[in-house]
Design a protein around this nucleic acid. Sequence first.
DNA 1: CTGTTAGCGCATTCAC
DNA 2: GTGAATGCGCTAACAG
Lengths: 356, 356
Amino acid sequence: MTELRTTPTPEPASAHPERSVRRASRVTIRDVARTAGVSVATVSKVINGRDGIAEATSARVLRVVEDLGYESSLVAASMRRRRTHVIGVLVAEFEPFALQLLQGVSDSLADTSYDVLAYAGSVSAGDHVGWERRSLSRLAGTLIDGAVLVTPTVALPSASVPVVAIDPHTGSAGPATVDTDNLAGARLATEHLIALGHRRIAHLRGRGDLESARLREQGYRDALADAGIPFDPALIAEGGYRAPEASRGAATLLDLADRPTAVFAANDLSAIETVRVAATRGLRIPDDLSVVGFDDIPEASACEPSLTTVRQPLHRMGAAAVQLLLTMLDGGEAGHHRMPAELIVRGSTRPLPEHT
Amino acid sequence: MTELRTTPTPEPASAHPERSVRRASRVTIRDVARTAGVSVATVSKVINGRDGIAEATSARVLRVVEDLGYESSLVAASMRRRRTHVIGVLVAEFEPFALQLLQGVSDSLADTSYDVLAYAGSVSAGDHVGWERRSLSRLAGTLIDGAVLVTPTVALPSASVPVVAIDPHTGSAGPATVDTDNLAGARLATEHLIALGHRRIAHLRGRGDLESARLREQGYRDALADAGIPFDPALIAEGGYRAPEASRGAATLLDLADRPTAVFAANDLSAIETVRVAATRGLRIPDDLSVVGFDDIPEASACEPSLTTVRQPLHRMGAAAVQLLLTMLDGGEAGHHRMPAELIVRGSTRPLPEHT
DNA sequence: CTGTTAGCGCATTCAC
DNA sequence: GTGAATGCGCTAACAG
């Protein structure tokens, strides 16, 4: 009776012609066991290569597995097993920054026995602060052996698996982290604009809940101070690291009576948005306005004009996070890894014409 | 007794000072129940908003949930429940093409109640043909409600959940699919080169097991035939859609005694690789060699010189896949969705100088 | 060598 | 209203 409930279509998968697109109920280990005429445990042993199984039995089971197209459910297996050999990359949202990191993580995991699982936690939950705790709680301890958290917004409580944070909320506090020298990077960007003769330099802020955003603003202020340029609060607007907010912030700045001649945006996404808004105002880049971004996502060099920006070595950061994670999975201790920032000068900045 | 085994650290999570970076064991529904002084079932009902629970009890439970930072395990929940509200994007590997699609999928799922899970199946398993069946089998029916398969290499047997394939193996055969008009796109690319005066046009093939690769080669041949240019087998090399293979293929072509004046690469990744190899041979792009790619990933416009390519609307393709999937999840029937291809002329192509 | 037993963390009947 | 059973698909001990 319960057998029937488990497998509504008792005939082997290979037998029934797929004329309808109906869902075939999943092939479970019990289907295999029943078809092969052995117990569930035996199948499990064969699958997992445990020894103590007769050659003949093993072969027969494997044949059935092949015939039925059986593959063990990650979920069920992970519930019993210690390690799943899956690394989770937890992001708030799949945007270019996170995707570049993901590529780095994935590439450097290619030589290991780990698979990669990326999870966007706040897609359906809105911009809930604390998405990382939610995601971690849902996946850790069961599905993934370790996690890479991309721009977590809160300090993480001790998790149930090893965790490495990239561009964390609290700077280099807490557990293992990977980040870029945001302060120095922001200085580079601002000093570049100053060197080009700009003095009315605006800043489009990043997300208020991220340490990186705070540091980038600080670097901007420091550079201004060093150059003896007074700080003007009117030249700061909220960009939030994302297009919609950046669009509003950029509009605020560009509609100022005494418009800035340059904008340092807290990341590339908002810099690109600034360029877009400038276009709607009839402003040409870089003739009427210089723009600098941060991150150097592929879109930065792809846009027109190409964006001057501060490069974070995203691919290498992902790889570094993996190294730290593997160390922790091996029982070792992992620390903090800071990457240098690099100014990449492209087409969106130019010297301020003498006729200010 | 069993209580002790389940929770090695019986004290509430909030009680023990996190001085060590030791793993805290996951907070389970039982911890919540015990702390709140109710049964596990009661907690479950409160969490899932079932009615029939005293207001006071409900409030108390919710407080404990908040305090302990409890979140139901996706794994455990998905094993009992019907729907997990998670959509899986299954890819062989996280490369730019797949990542752009992922972004499209994710963005168009933002307004729904679904979360997104991306899984790279062949990371640890090598280039195993059939990764999609393996991944699907591991995740479907348990962890995800539906799946978007990116460039599956085999025709899928009926799966246990709704599935949409993007750029499928078998063209538009089988279940729901989304693809681009590869044949027309390849013609556009080749005709563009022909219009520029090129006649020795090479083709760097895509992955042999993909229909898209076959169609792109066919489009190339068709365009040559229409222009009355004889097909030369020596001008075809394997690119495999990936950098390492493309590198070898490009070298073969560029080291030919009678070198081609233009290369149509089956995708952007191999086109970019061709540009790279050309540089090592001292060839300038586009002066000494014109190169056209396919896909229009962000890297295509980012490279130097920017790449002339055939654009696939990747973001929209991801969104289209989601629409089909949601239809199927709603019990409806979904069909095939074909997107137009568009030639984007950039800096990597130019007219062949008269002095051939 | 193989089958039986006991859960993993959770949701779902059913009794109480 | 609440709580003890039960099972999801699977694996690890332990029996036979």
